[in-house]
Amino acid sequence: MNNRLKRDSLKAYMFLFPAVGLILLFKIYPIIIVFGESFYKVSYLSGSKVFVGINNYLDLFFDRSFWNSVWVTTKLNLLINPIQVVIAVVMALLINMEFRGRLFYRLLFFIPLGVSLAVTTIYWSIFFRPGNGVMNYILNSVGIPRQPFFNSPSQALWIIIGIASWKGCSFWMIFILAGLKNIPREIYEACDVEGIEPIASFFYITLPLLAKTILFVFVTDTAANFMLFIPIFMITKGGPDSSTNVLMHEAYRTAMLQGDMGHGMAMIVFLMLMLMTVVAIQFKVTGEREI
């Protein structure tokens, strides 16, 4: 019996090994490297490496563009995560309903999944071209004056949110849809028998039974959006006037363009701590200890 247990445990570890190995290699190892590098300063010109303790972290406190990027990251996430989760829930509910042409909408909602974020970014950057772009012609046709979009410090972040959400919502919709499919049909049949209105059944049946799925989506979506980089890197490069300069982009600029790897790594560690704090708060607020 004992031998069998050992054999089973060994099997379990063997099955787990590929996934755990890849997580260790591609997730945990880079985190350790980043954490280690954040305590060093590499000379820009000579390339020599000196241990500077927590100096890179102390420098962050006096770095105005770092604090601006913390604010932009916070603002982006306060906006984008609720927007994406709500839209994903609505989309999942829509394609879960029985109606004529449902297949068409299903296909429509799934299209963004087949397009990479880089390609999405290029398409939408053409659509939102400042000046004589497609969107401005549409706005103009309904009497709204043309907009600067990416050229405006007050609009650029919203367009970035739009681009990331166009793709993100479809992705998160799949999880919500899976959650919806797990709710037993008998409960809704009972609601019908009892004459409960659909809106009431949504708030009293669907939503509570979806809570764990929504929390999972909310947490993972937050993690993904804290690291949003591609549309910003490709279109705005943090501008105009640093209005889209999120922490990921600021860390990239500092480490890769300005050659200050230690300072950039300290920013990434800060971003990681910030994300962990936010996720902890999400768990606390929603009263969940596990997903």
């Binding site: 050229n151 410090p153 490069k237 006037d241 300005q258 050659g259």
Partner: peptide, 18 residues
């Protein structure tokens, strides 16, 4: 590289209304 990046940012920001 620093001067190039700063120069680009100043001119780009000014073109975008800053």
């Amino acid at each position: 590289p620093f001067i190039n990046a700063g120069f680009d940012k100043a001119f780009t920001d000014a073109a975008q209304g800053v």
